[in-house]
Design a protein around this nucleic acid. Structure first.
Lengths: 227, 227
DNA sequence: ACGCATATTTAGCACGTCCTAAAAATCGAA
DNA sequence: TTCGATTTTTAGGACGTGCTAAATATGCGT
């Protein structure tokens, strides 16, 4: 059984396409050309050509004008790429003191160059963590992942409710830096004190400290209600 | 003064060309098209085109049919690439337990993806070593390097002479593995016991243990005669 | 000084990835 | 159901990097 990866089996753009298609599928079902283009910051027309090549390689199935769906092979490549990304993020924070708002960009480049051996050594060196610094689950070296139950966000919390932060969006460094300053990191205990009307700020107790944040920000903080 | 590097300023092939041209220059003077092609394992015809582009970018000077010479800008890019390579090699051995015969290939890919910040953090984490695991000097973050005096090799040693291994060639994993088995690693104390005629084996004492190696291998072990 | 071996360059092509502009398919609303 | 807005695809092109085959320059030995 082949589980390994000869580094360079796939180009960096190919891995990036599969990654974003995986994420789009995970949320919404089939991935449209436009969604993919937007996530990758390229023109939609560029996606059509690449999608054909990926379909030819058996990494996804494409119904013209209707969207794209990963094959098992494509999903596996996506998950192994995501594993590399998240192990690198975790390693950079735990072993090299990186601030959590700078690990994403570094991992975005290293994920295409790191061998499976390096990733496994990194994971072992920091104790095989289950999630990356933003709380996203790390797939196994065999391309399996436990996405866990669907998570709510602080934006959906009712006043008085208590919860624990499980995960935050990692795609914006400035947002991450601010979340860190406010203490909204995975593991934090949060109580929603009150919610101002008309999309106003949410008053929170974050590990006992009061903070007020906007609802847009709150929707990026995923939680588990603890009672 | 600009000392940093915006990752991706140069493509991986460009960095590779500049690296090998630097190494060829260091040994022999001007780098010929054929030498470059051989080091990169590509066709000589492919080199001509790239050399023109690199000259256009001011990274080297090219006299038609006569060879190539790095500009200061080109040498700087080469040395910063070499720095990334060697710091990564040192980090992989010291922090992640990589065997020294496997660090080269990994570094060859990561050197094009790692940011200066990552490299500096790696170097700091292992105590800012002066050389990589093979004894090659690590350039500073400003692109300066101390190549040190010209080194002899075990192949040139006279019987009875004693020396210390300073550096070994790192471009062949099998050779490195064997050198490691024999103990011919930087820092080892070596005495040449005898040399068989007609290109025969050299009898050595490596840190007190007897070994016999061929002259081809011996020429890849660089030394400092200690008296 | 000439001719030949060798080194180098040019010409022409391929592939992957991106682009813009234009054409075509789909979907929703009147 | 038909039209207009939106989405997607096609057409045609650019760029970087590689290839082979053919042309050309260099330099050495006689």
């Amino acid at each position: 059984m082949m589980t390994g990866r000869a580094t360079g089996d796939y180009t960096a753009p190919v891995e990036d396409y599969l990654k974003v298609i995986y994420e789009i599928e995970r949320r919404g079902g089939a991935a449209g050309t436009n969604d993919i283009a937007q996530q990758l910051s390229i023109a939609p027309a560029s996606v059509s050509g690449m999608v054909r090549r990926l379909a030819d390689q058996g990494l996804l199935e494409h119904e013209r004008y209707r969207g794209v769906r990963l094959t098992d092979a494509g999903r596996r490549v996506a998950l192994l790429t995501i594993r590399r990304h998240r192990v690198i993020e975790a390693y950079l924070t735990h072993a090299l003191g990186y601030p959590w708002d700078r690990v994403h960009d570094e991992a975005e480049r290293l994920e295409h160059a790191a061998s499976d051996e390096l990733i496994d050594r990194m994971a072992a060196a920091i104790g095989e963590p289950a999630t990356d610094p933003h709380g996203a689950p790390i797939p196994t070296r065999w391309g399996e992942i436990d996405e866990g139950p669907h998570l709510g966000t602080i934006a959906e919390l009712a006043p008085g409710q208590r919860c624990r932060v499980v995960r935050v969006s990692d795609d914006d460094a400035r947002r991450l830096r601010y979340l860190g300053e406010v203490g909204l990191i995975p593991g934090a205990e949060v109580v929603l004190v009150s919610r101002a009307p008309f999309g106003g700020p949410l008053a929170l107790l974050v590990d006992g400290v009061e903070h007020a944040i906007g609802p847009a920000l709150a929707s990026h903080v995923m939680i588990e209600t603890s009672g």
